[in-house]
Design a protein around this nucleic acid. Structure first.
Lengths: 190, 190
DNA sequence: ACCTGAACACCGTTCAAGT
DNA sequence: ACCTGAACACCGTTCAAGT
């Protein structure tokens, strides 16, 4: 969000990621390494000192996205009442995906998660761990005891990921607006 | 699937789509117009006689994908027993996404659905209609009568789309293999 | 160690021209 | 009507060279 003039020397890596995250949402087009370098005021090949190739840079953006994502999910899951925590976590998830659709798409694309596995996986596991924890607490309080916690967690993750994609890409039928998030989650939450 | 030698004259549009669908799954890299034209044996700009630009071609591929997808979904939903139909439809959905991951991703990406709205939307609506029909029959037979049919359909679609994405991109935690599809759907189907 | 300049092969797209 | 050839601006990437 902040713009500075003290880049270009020793902080290029940070500058690339910051500008990359900014451009990701603003420019609808694919993120170009050359355009990114140009907007920072550096030569077209300067990024190669910090990233092996374009994919690795995209992976770093995805990793930063997963980091912020995990922060949001973990906090939302700390709601004391078990079922309220599940719903709060779900709404936080959908909010994140809606507010940063390009970043979310990158995170869960082959250019994101798969290409910087180590960094992305660690943060994704942190978010998924919060989800499993919330599900476990709900299960202990008597919610859907007929299913394994891990299966319940995967099913909930699938609902959230799927709905984030469908609503983000405006694939839902007309008449179904964001207002129905609550209703939708209720189907799963019973 | 079939390879012919009678292309290049009058059938270029068909040839581009056929070869495009083939390359989509084989080449992991992004589909290039020039490479596609070259593999058909035509000049780099010949496709522009049939498609306004690359996006329109991708949209046509997505539309063909949605057509095949709808066929599969509609057939799977014709299973007589209501709950069995829902499960059959879900498994057909996940099968399609797993067997043609690149096509599925394209269909539900901004380059697919959004760019050739008319053709894609018609076929997507056909598939979604089959889903709504199957849900309606289940609802009439006493399944989850507490929720609106449309809400149930959206929730099921979200589960399927989400799981297709997570398993297609191998984002699920280790130890959760394809064998758990049935278990996962059971959570929703109760 | 970090960046620049020049170069390569590739890409989407356009325009004039051929048949 | 359908395709080719040549050209433009752009891209990822590499390599030699500068500081």
């Amino acid at each position: 969000m902040t713009t500075r003039e003290t880049y270009h020397h020793g902080d290029l890596r940070t500058a690339l990621i910051a500008e990359g995250l900014r451009r990701l949402e603003s420019a609808g087009t694919d993120l170009s390494l050359r355009a990114l370098a140009k907007s920072i005021g550096v030569s077209p090949n300067a990024p190669y000192r910090h990233f092996a190739n374009r994919s690795k840079l995209m992976g770093a953006l995805a990793a930063e996205g997963f980091h912020r994502f995990a922060d949001v999910i973990v906090v939302a899951g700390q709601e004391p009442k078990p079922l309220a925590a599940l719903k709060s976590l779900g709404l936080a998830y959908l909010d994140f995906a809606q507010n940063q659709p390009a970043l979310y798409r990158l995170m869960f694309s082959p250019y994101g998660y798969s290409l910087d596995s180590s960094a992305c996986k660690a943060e994704a596991d942190r978010a998924f761990g919060a989800l499993v924890g919330a599900i476990a607490r709900a299960s202990e309080s008597g919610w859907k005891t007929g299913h394994a916690v891990l299966t319940l967690a995967l099913a909930y993750w699938a609902v959230l990921h799927g709905w984030a994609g469908l609503s983000g890409d405006r694939l839902m039928p007309p008449g179904v607006a964001e207002a129905s998030w609550g209703d939708l989650l209720e189907v799963y939450l019973v």
